[in-house]
Design a protein around this nucleic acid. Structure first.
Lengths: 130, 130
DNA sequence: ATAATGTATAGTAATACAGTATAGTTTTGA
DNA sequence: TCAAAACTATACTGTATTACTATACATTAT
């Protein structure tokens, strides 16, 4: 029913990188966001493969943002970690992305809620959170 | 991230009882909502103990709504089954119900989303769904 | 060369979800 | 009265997801 801890951590990590504004290694990131190193590494890998941040190997390696904080929204981060937000998965058809697919009035309410949440998340950029 | 199947079933069951407008036994309810009898019984028990419906034992027993469809909102049903909707459990303090408790900007956004969803659910009554 | 990084894959413990099983109790009505 | 038709209470189980960990490896700056 809620978003996952992993999403919450991912937001913290991206915000931290934006705050610092420079390349940071995994250890520093983990310590400053309160996430264990191992779990932070997993989340960082996720963010890298999703194109949100980029990584550098070797000594002096680490992570930095791939886009400016103004161009990254909360929705971008959450969708990267757990996919598009849907309040209720549709029980009748497999695909709830199109409103004309909604089978009954309840589903229409749920679809409206999903859309509203997505819009609210898209309205907040990482720059807003600094 | 989504609401549970049990909530979805609970909504269907309450809407079905409203449609029928008379006492129905568990078997009829299960068959007409597409929920297995056992699981429907569990949900019905939940709805009874929450005061949303009342039950009658013996032959001619069954279930009926305790309030009129106009007086039951989607929010009432969902909160009964899974508690108050919160988009993100607060990681810092234990209690996310008071906005002044929110510790940072992200939490404020998440709190706003939770409140919006709760309001949208409260705006829809079972009567609206018939 | 080597130490400091990140990468890839796989594994695990805890929790929640979805559903089932068993053994009742109560009520109606023939 | 008593049996059938209902509901009740408790507890169990399999599966999926969440949250995290472990091992072994690859790359790069100095």
């Amino acid at each position: 029913m809620h978003i996952t801890l992993e999403s919450d951590y991912a937001v913290r990590i991206v915000v931290y990188l934006a705050q610092r504004g420079c390349r940071c290694d995994a250890n520093t990131i983990a310590q400053n966001t309160g996430v264990t190193l191992r779990f932070a590494l997993k989340i960082l890998r996720n963010l890298v493969s999703g194109g949100m941040i980029r990584s550098f190997k070797g000594t002096q390696g680490g992570y930095e943002l791939n886009r400016s904080p103004e161009e990254i929204t909360l929705r971008d981060i959450l969708e990267l970690v757990e996919g598009k937000y849907v309040f209720s998965r549709c029980l009748e058809s497999g695909d709830c992305t199109r409103p004309e697919n909604t089978c009954c009035k309840v589903q229409r309410v749920f679809f409206d809620i999903s859309k509203t949440v997505q819009e609210k998340l898209a309205a907040v950029t990482v720059a807003d959170l600094l």
